[in-house]
Measured scan of single mutants.
Amino acid sequence: TGYYDVLGVKPDASDNELKKAYRKMALKFHPDKNPDGAEQFKQISQAYEVLSDEKKRQIYDQ
């Protein structure tokens, strides 16, 4: 599964769309709200870390 799929956004998503999707998913799977969501929360955080950084995103998109 790709990072875009993890966040539920298209590859041409804007920074604002990425942030909005990340916040929505992070709230849904945060371990405090969803004890079984810890692994998914890590994936969401990693996806956002890469896609929100312009240089990392360019490398990922290659």
Rank of each mutant, 00 (worst) to 15 (best):
residue 61 D to R: 05
residue 48 Y to V: 01
residue 34 N to D: 09
residue 46 Q to W: 12
residue 21 A to E: 00
residue 48 Y to C: 05
residue 61 D to G: 05
residue 52 S to A: 09
residue 59 I to S: 11
residue 56 K to Q: 10
residue 14 S to C: 09
residue 58 Q to A: 13
residue 16 N to W: 15
residue 26 A to H: 15
residue 45 S to Y: 10
residue 12 D to H: 08
residue 9 V to G: 03
residue 17 E to A: 07
residue 7 L to Q: 02
residue 25 M to G: 05
residue 60 Y to C: 05
residue 37 G to Y: 15
residue 46 Q to R: 12
residue 13 A to F: 08
residue 1 T to P: 12
residue 20 K to S: 13
residue 8 G to S: 03
residue 57 R to N: 03
residue 14 S to D: 11
residue 52 S to P: 02
residue 3 Y to A: 03
residue 3 Y to E: 02
residue 41 F to A: 01
residue 37 G to C: 14
residue 44 I to E: 01
residue 27 L to V: 08
residue 37 G to E: 09
residue 54 E to K: 15
residue 59 I to K: 11
residue 34 N to C: 11
residue 21 A to R: 01
residue 6 V to Y: 03
residue 48 Y to M: 04
residue 52 S to F: 06
residue 16 N to S: 13
residue 62 Q to W: 08
residue 2 G to C: 15
residue 56 K to M: 10
residue 39 E to Y: 10
residue 38 A to N: 07
residue 11 P to M: 09
residue 59 I to G: 06
residue 3 Y to W: 11
residue 41 F to W: 15
residue 21 A to V: 05
residue 8 G to E: 06
residue 36 D to S: 10
residue 12 D to N: 11
residue 36 D to V: 07
residue 25 M to I: 06
residue 42 K to F: 11
residue 20 K to R: 13
residue 59 I to H: 11
residue 20 K to G: 06
residue 56 K to E: 04
residue 38 A to M: 09
residue 49 E to K: 13
residue 3 Y to L: 13
residue 54 E to T: 14
residue 40 Q to W: 13
residue 55 K to D: 05
residue 45 S to A: 12
residue 50 V to M: 06
residue 5 D to N: 09
residue 15 D to W: 15
residue 62 Q to L: 12
residue 39 E to H: 07
residue 31 P to N: 10
residue 25 M to C: 13
residue 58 Q to N: 09
residue 20 K to F: 10
residue 32 D to I: 08
residue 47 A to N: 00
residue 7 L to S: 00
residue 19 K to N: 07
residue 47 A to W: 06
residue 21 A to F: 01
residue 55 K to H: 11
residue 45 S to T: 14
residue 46 Q to G: 05
residue 44 I to R: 02
residue 24 K to S: 11
residue 56 K to T: 11
residue 27 L to S: 12
residue 37 G to A: 12
residue 6 V to P: 00
residue 24 K to V: 08
residue 23 R to I: 14
residue 53 D to P: 00
residue 49 E to M: 08
residue 8 G to W: 03
residue 29 F to L: 04
residue 18 L to C: 05
residue 7 L to W: 02
residue 54 E to C: 14
residue 37 G to L: 11
residue 49 E to W: 13
residue 58 Q to K: 14
residue 44 I to C: 05
residue 58 Q to I: 10
residue 52 S to C: 12
residue 2 G to K: 12
residue 53 D to L: 05
residue 57 R to L: 03
residue 48 Y to K: 01
residue 35 P to Y: 02
residue 56 K to G: 05
residue 17 E to W: 03
residue 26 A to S: 10
residue 17 E to S: 04
residue 61 D to F: 04
residue 14 S to L: 04
residue 44 I to Y: 04
residue 49 E to I: 12
residue 33 K to N: 13
residue 31 P to K: 09
residue 23 R to K: 12
residue 61 D to T: 05
residue 23 R to V: 12
residue 15 D to K: 14
residue 47 A to E: 01
